[in-house]
Amino acid sequence: MSGIVFESLLSDFTIKNPYKDFSEELHRVEIRKDPLLGDTSIYNPFLKDKARFFFGDNDPELIRKLVEDSAGTCIFCGEKVEKNTPYYPADLLPEGRIRVGEALLFPNLFSVGKYHPVVSLSKAHFLKLSEFSPELIGNGLAAASQFLNRVYSVDFSVPYSVINANYLFPAGASLVHPHLQILVTPVAYSYHGRLIDACNTYYQKFGSCYHTDLIDEEKRTGLRYITQQGKWHWMTAFSPMGSNEVIAVHEGEGDFALLSDEDLKSLSDGISKVLSFYEDLGHLSFNYSIFSLRKSHPTEGFRCLLKIINRQNLYQNYRNDDYFLQKMLQSELIINLPEELAEKLRAFFKKE
């Protein structure tokens, strides 16, 4: 029996609007709770018309200048990526780095975990979101998979791994150049740990995997389910943790290191489509994370999970898209309803 409940609370209230001669105006706020973790997100339909106020428009001239000014000193560009990035010791990687197509994996000089490699994804210093091709993304994920398998062969103390992307400064990137960051650690960092614990608790209580139940429930309702590509199921999040969040769940595997070439290809194709969709919405910056748990770890009911969001646009004096609601209350503001977002994305995934 599925234990998934899509819980929301509606609150109605009135204000006297000064822009309508102080006439009374009815407002409604919807608070949604994530079915697994209980994390809250808030939707107010009045804010939908203010999306441009929240995100602004990308400034092409500012972006052009940013790209040009940063290209000259970028250590990921041209021959500098070979000369100015570190190697792993031979007992971990005999060749020191991993190259797959244009993707090059090497150690991070400023690690925040036991294993924290960076993957430079492309020769190009800057890409529009529609230029993140399945091949470029797939090469980066293949390099991550090779690295993870190598680490697993020599170190049994690190069951937790996450593949991450920050693109451009609003997403927290310190470099313009497209890249990934991978964390492989002996301790699950906060959200990852909560996710694993909640999946295990759900399995113990209901005898089934939360994410496979989620797939079944979302397919049944059809409200947020987008499509299936290979063994990946794509949907929007009922209670998102970021702007225009899209998730993908692998139907059977929880360990990224064990994904097949076809799994990585399907995942890369889907990520590429979502990024093109974000560009179509007028966005340029994004984050995504792929959560993984080593197969040998005893926790039950976990599946590989991708979560991808767009971030603030680039213009002079842009506002941060996180404020007290996100950082201190750890709740998210919904601008576009997940159900409406899924409807648009279904058409986008059908494009070739």
Rank of each mutant, 00 (worst) to 15 (best):
D155R: 09
F132I: 00
N317E: 09
A342V: 01
E30L: 01
L36D: 01
K20V: 11
L214A: 06
G72N: 08
P240I: 10
T40Q: 15
D39S: 13
K80I: 09
D269V: 12
H27N: 02
L337V: 02
F302E: 04
L37P: 03
D263T: 00
T221E: 03
A142G: 06
L345Q: 03
I290K: 02
G38W: 08
I309S: 01
P240E: 04
Q326E: 14
H125Y: 12
P298Q: 07
K16Q: 09
N244A: 15
D91C: 03
S111N: 15
D21P: 03
K65Q: 02
S296P: 02
S266P: 00
Y167W: 02
L223T: 03
H177Y: 04
K344G: 02
E332N: 14
S23C: 09
A171Y: 04
S331H: 06
H211E: 03
C74V: 01
K350E: 12
P86M: 10
E300V: 12
F277A: 10
F238E: 00
N200Y: 10
V81Y: 00
D213A: 07
G222S: 02
G96N: 03
I63P: 00
L329A: 14
A103V: 06
T73R: 09
P178A: 03
A347E: 08
E300L: 14
G78V: 07
S41L: 08
L183K: 04
G172S: 02
I42C: 00
S239D: 01
N244G: 11
A173Q: 01
V151M: 13
F348C: 07
E95K: 12
L136N: 12
Q146T: 14
E7R: 15
E343M: 08
L183H: 13
V67I: 08
F169R: 08
V151P: 07
P117M: 04
I15F: 07
S266M: 04
L121S: 09
E24Q: 14
